[in-house]
Amino acid sequence: MISIVTPVYNEEGNVVYFHDEVTKVMKELAMDYEIIYVNDGSRDRTDELIHQLADRDPHVRALTFARNFGHQIAITCGMDFAKGDAVITMDGDMQHPPALIPKLIEKWQEGYDIVQTIRTATEDAGFLKKITSSGYYAVINSISTTRVVPGGSDFRLMDRKALNTFLKFREHSRFIRGIVGGLGFRQTSIEFEAPARHAGVSKFSMKKMIHFAMDGIITNSTIPLRISFYIGLLSAFAGFLLILHVLYCVITGQAVPGWATMTILISIFGSLNLMCLGILGEYIGHVFEETRNRPLYWLSDDSAAHEDNPYYKTHSNGNPR
């Protein structure tokens, strides 16, 4: 069985067309399937339309958030409720082509646990967006221990055992591409060119994209905190050199009265402040890692997780809700 998880937000112009296209593809595959729509607090007719689809199509499940929680949370919600042996996540604006679904399933049947799509280009993407996107991936991969594939999208297939592991990651600030990239398992990718939206405009405003980018950096690396400590050390070294210069000026009689004292004090306390902030940053980084409450480990063979495991006694199916 295949579960297709689709978050929707103000997609009244797309959702019915998207549903028809996905249904055509799944009927040709002759596989059991379900389509889970997660309404992320839409303010148009999206909620009404997905419930109409659920009423007339037994393959459809419609979930509605009480308010807008965000794209990444909506994807996670759909995964929580998915029953399939494999789960495909994709957006409902037709920029994730349903025609690629058979290729994803084919790779899964070859034995891959995660099949990631790589967006090589987007028809309606501007020059600025392309440049900022490539720059962002370069930055995040330079500071993160988990590689995030440039052009990677949230259009992917995950086998049930990989999904069960993913669902143990319950942090609120979510960057799913980073989490999936660090899961391991057998992964492969498929490249595609994203078409223009079928209808409407992108719901990712500049503000949302910046927040999403920051979540990706903060949830994947504590290096920005560590950088503050290194800056403190460099400042301390620069302060020491400045103090030597000040003493030289005093000895040679070039210093204005009071200038040497103030300069030395500022150098000492400024360096100490930056070093202390860096040390505090290290502790905050460790606290941050612990409060995410990620699993200490996971097994590549999900069948090895049985009732003798205390984690699975606490969570009956291995998936904390």
Rank of each mutant, 00 (worst) to 15 (best):
M90P: 13
L157K: 08
P102I: 05
T261R: 09
V38A: 02
E191K: 14
S202P: 11
L296F: 10
S267E: 06
S221P: 03
K107T: 03
I251E: 11
S42I: 01
I223Q: 07
N14D: 15
Q109Y: 07
E193M: 11
G92R: 11
S133G: 07
L225F: 12
N10E: 01
N10H: 00
Y283R: 09
R67L: 12
L274W: 00
R197M: 12
P224T: 04
E191F: 01
S221C: 07
F175G: 06
W259R: 08
V5N: 04
G70D: 11
I140H: 04
V287D: 10
M158K: 13
T291W: 06
D32P: 07
V250D: 07
R177H: 02
H96Q: 07
G258L: 12
F69Y: 13
L244P: 00
C77R: 15
Y17D: 05
A304V: 01
I284A: 13
R292K: 15
R147S: 10
Q52E: 15
K313W: 00
G278V: 02
M275G: 05
S205P: 12
T122F: 10
S228T: 05
P7H: 02
E282K: 15
M214L: 15
I50E: 05
I190Y: 04
F240D: 00
I114H: 13
D32W: 06
R61V: 10
V149D: 10
T122K: 14
W108Q: 04
W298K: 00
D32M: 03
G13Y: 01
Q116H: 05
C276M: 14
L100D: 10
A82N: 11
